[in-house]
């Protein structure tokens, strides 16, 4: 009877994951593998294609080739296009924060926790969760953006002016390794829940109820991985190990953002992202 409950929990979280997130890993992998030739993404690989495609960044539906306006003389200088792109990344990240929040609210027991603890859990888990979800959109050559409608190459991201060009490389390296575990969306739903319900986040008022929920989630994840990946007996342990690498990745990222604030005076961080990053590590 206990395993039936754990299976029901996995199913519930998978369903709310599908409701909360517009682009699943399954869809992203289909686009990246080119299986779905009808919706091949628009590729941004240089300044010219960025300027051509930037008006569609964060569009949920980009116009077909014949309806796309031709690149004209009115385009901004490349530097501004780059900055505008970075701003739209921030906007999409803020939107993703609200999607993750909706997902967190669907984890049984989460909304019954002290509201301040809900904030703490989300604040500390948020960037970890976003990086895990970003891995689903990446391969060694680049990443999908704009709900899978644009593919931006890794080389082009690397060519961004300092320090932006260096910021994505560690995420690619992490993603390539993480993707080797071959988790699917139903595994991810549980893994993200486990990350969110971490009892060791600084400043939690009531640790025990958080740990109790996480304990159940962990048992559900272990069972899920056993059933879904019978050929990888060590997968549960490997997935848990990724949580350590993830914390390092996030703390490096936050540090780069702090440095950015000193060097890029014009760069203003979205207020929601500011809330999350303030006093984080």
């Amino acid at each position: 009877p206990e395993s039936a409950d754990l299976r029901a929990l996995a199913k519930h979280l998978y369903e709310s994951y599908l409701k909360s997130f517009p682009l699943t890993k399954a869809k992203a992998r289909a686009i990246l593998s080119g299986k779905n030739s009808d919706n091949a993404p628009f590729v941004i690989h240089d300044m010219r294609s960025l300027m051509e495609g930037e008006q569609f960044v964060n569009c949920r539906q980009i116009p077909t080739q014949e309806h796309r306006p031709v690149m004209g003389a009115l385009h901004p200088p490349p530097d501004e296009a780059e900055l505008r792109f970075l701003h739209s990344c921030q906007f999409r990240s803020a939107e993703a924060v609200s999607e993750v929040t909706e997902f967190a609210k669907s984890i049984p027991g989460f909304v019954n926790l002290d509201l301040n603890d809900q904030v703490t859990l989300l604040k500390y888990a948020m960037i970890e969760v976003l990086f895990i979800m970003m891995a689903a959109l990446m391969n060694k050559d680049g990443t999908l953006i704009s709900y899978g409608q644009i593919f931006m190459t890794r080389e082009f991201l690397k060519s961004f002016r300092k320090p932006f060009g260096e910021m994505m490389e560690p995420k690619f390296e992490f993603s390539i390794k993480f993707n080797l575990l071959e988790l699917d969306d139903s595994d991810m739903a549980l893994f993200l829940s486990v990350i969110i319900l971490s009892g060791d986040r600084p400043g939690l008022l009531n640790v025990k109820p958080v740990e109790d929920i996480q304990e159940t989630l962990l048992r559900s994840l272990e069972l899920q991985l056993k059933m879904n990946h019978p050929d990888s007996p060590q997968l549960f342990a490997k997935v848990l190990q990724k949580m350590t690498d993830l914390r390092q990745l996030v703390s490096d990222h936050v540090q780069s953002i702090q440095l950015l604030k000193q060097t890029e005076i014009d760069m203003c961080l979205h207020p929601l992202l500011q809330e999350i990053m303030r006093d984080l590590y």
Partner: peptide, 20 residues
């Protein structure tokens, strides 16, 4: 609470989209 105004709002709102 003041420090995390938007997060509080997101948590307390229903599923309706929040103005970001």
């Amino acid at each position: 609470k003041e420090k995390h105004k938007i997060l509080h709002r997101l948590l307390q709102n229903s599923t309706s989209p929040v103005d970001l």
